[in-house]
């Protein structure tokens, strides 16, 4: 089974990675460009990172985005976990299939439609658009991702663990807190990180439902790019890439940990 990589494999991996990461790599390199012109290389420099620190509008947008992402992740995690529990644990209640379909729909729904629908809703019920409408919209958008992750963990959960806890005198609610929650916690944490990341980089939905004083970072970047790409944009994008990459690594480590099942009974160590 242990074979070295063939030439074919090495080539496909190299091509695949180049296809995925060459544009990003170019962006990262150009963020360290000393030249004012984006497409002309003027030597290495970190001046655009320094000038970014003086860009009040960009920093303000970043701060708004982080706050929205944090609140979104918390709300989506609670709602998504509850939905996952209902889907896995409530047995066959009436409309279960419909419910699971409804929970998963936002996964495949075009964001333009989600954004438009939410905008219509907010206009109809006359909520002032801004920070909170973006947070609500992002919660709607990301909740289903949390549900998918937590549900997978719950499906692989050995119910006899909960029965054992109750058998040993632990009431149902305490069983949930002391046995169930610690065991699905990695999946919940992974869901939180994913929701945070999705909220942080959403442009389409936020564009629909945002209002005055609630310009998120992607919206700010997009509007500046329309007036021409400044090297500062490359710098902020590089920072975002760093944050997202860190988040993805954390989430996948959590998921891997969540997937680590106890060794099979009777198995040899």
């Amino acid at each position: 089974m242990r074979r070295g990589l063939s030439v074919f494999n090495v080539t496909s991996i190299a091509l695949g990675l180049a296809f995925l990461y060459l544009p990003i790599l170019i962006l990262v390199i150009y963020s360290f460009n000393a030249s004012r012109l984006v497409t002309v290389w003027g030597g290495w420099s970190t001046r655009w990172y320094v000038s970014l620190l003086g860009n009040e509008a960009m920093l303000e947008a970043a701060w708004i985005s982080l706050r929205i992402a944090f609140l979104t992740a918390c709300a989506a995690t609670v709602l998504g976990t509850l939905a996952a529990l209902a889907l896995v644990r409530a047995g066959r209640f009436r409309g279960r299939l419909l419910f699971s379909g409804l929970v998963y729909a936002p996964l495949v729904m075009p964001e333009v439609i989600t954004g438009l629908a939410l905008l219509l809703l907010f206009v109809a019920i006359e909520i002032e658009r801004g920070f909170w409408t973006v947070t609500i919209a992002h919660t709607t958008l990301t909740m289903c991702f949390v549900t998918v992750i937590v549900q997978a963990r719950l499906l692989g959960f050995d119910r006899s663990l909960e029965e054992a806890a109750m058998d040993l005198g632990c009431p149902p609610l305490r069983t949930f807190i002391t046995v169930t929650l610690p065991l699905i916690a990695p999946a919940i944490a992974a869901g939180w990180v994913l929701a945070f990341m999705l909220s942080l980089d959403d442009l389409v939905v936020a564009n629909f439902v945002t209002g005055p004083g609630a310009t998120t970072l992607p919206i700010r970047i997009y509007s500046e790019v329309r007036l021409g790409v400044k090297p500062e944009i490359n710098a902020i994008c590089t920072i975002i890439i760093g944050v997202v990459a860190a988040g993805i690594i954390v989430a996948s480590l959590l998921t891997k940990f969540a997937g680590a099942k106890p060794a099979p009974i009777g198995g040899q160590i």
Partner: peptide, 8 residues
């Protein structure tokens, strides 16, 4: 329990 159901 048959699976032992030890808390991992």
């Amino acid at each position: 329990f048959q699976s032992y159901a030890l808390f991992p």
